[in-house]
């Protein structure tokens, strides 16, 4: 599922939940456990990467979500969804603000919630095969794991609008052009590059490094809360259930393509 190991001051977090590291309750709990350990440790870096061939993460666990809501929405289910989103936001916020330098190594699919996870990192290394997308509009919702404020924090608004309003995917090279990732490396070289970044950042005085990160990176708290509210409101419509149904029941010739 998710394993993490501390060596030489670097936490290496490897996600291996087939088919493509979908983010549901299990992934959430694992991240919560990891973050608690990281916060208490004096490691200098964290590397998050995927041990799966299929990619970094395809996003929220839509199959579970669909099975939860296919019976229809009610007060209790809305409460559960709201709780789930709050927990995701909490753990993503803590990840975002960890004292360590967080490096994400991304290959192939990095969509939706997975993209939102990658946006919690401080430095992103992408293999040439990486593709980034926010396809949420196809499901009648918006990214609700905190992705929008974090994307706004990192890249220009024109590109934010293009990605969100078209739902299209962009490749690593393009991502580097717009400043979304700062390293593009050949296929298979992501982890090595991430380790090099980690070793470099680990050379400096920890207090100075931590203060520097804290000064540079602000948590857009109000925007994050607003995003959650808007997402919850949209979730209540039938459009969402129908779209989920279509996604879940497809025999996948094209679901990753629009």
């Amino acid at each position: 599922m998710v394993e993490w190991m501390l060596q030489n001051g670097i936490w290496e977090v490897k996600m291996s939940a087939p088919p493509c590291n979908e983010i549901g309750l299990e992934m959430l709990s694992a991240l919560e456990s990891f973050v608690g350990e990281a916060e208490a440790s004096d490691a200098h870096s964290v590397i998050i990467y995927s041990g799966l061939e299929s990619g970094f993460s395809a996003g929220a666990d839509l199959k579970s979500l669909y099975s939860e809501v296919s019976g229809g929405w009610d007060e209790a289910k809305r409460g559960q969804l709201s709780d789930f989103l709050s927990r995701i936001h909490s753990v993503f916020n803590r990840l975002d603000m960890l004292p360590q330098t967080v490096i994400c190594s991304i290959h192939r699919v990095c969509f939706g919630g997975g993209f939102e996870l990658a946006l919690c990192g401080d430095i992103r290394v992408a293999e040439k095969t990486a593709r980034f997308a926010f396809p949420e509009l196809r499901l009648g919702i918006i990214p609700c794991f905190g992705g929008i404020p974090r994307l706004e924090r990192d890249i220009g608004n024109a590109m934010v609008r293009d990605l969100l309003l078209t739902g299209r995917s962009i490749r690593a090279t393009k991502a580097a052009e717009i400043g979304l990732v700062t390293h593009v490396v050949p296929r298979g070289e992501g982890l090595a590059a991430a380790r090099a970044v980690a070793n470099q950042t680990g050379k400096f005085d920890p207090e100075a490094r931590r203060s520097c990160k804290q000064f540079l990176k602000l948590l857009p708290t109000e925007r994050l809360e607003e995003e959650k509210r808007v997402a919850l409101r949209l979730f209540q419509s039938d459009v969402v259930i129908n779209a989920l149904k279509k996604f879940v029941e497809s025999d996948d010739v094209r679901p990753y393509l629009p």
Partner: peptide, 15 residues
């Protein structure tokens, strides 16, 4: 192939 691999092809073509 399926759509996920089509994306890989797309990347190659774009590059």
């Amino acid at each position: 192939i399926k759509s996920i691999q089509a994306l890989d092809l797309l990347t190659d073509l774009e590059d």
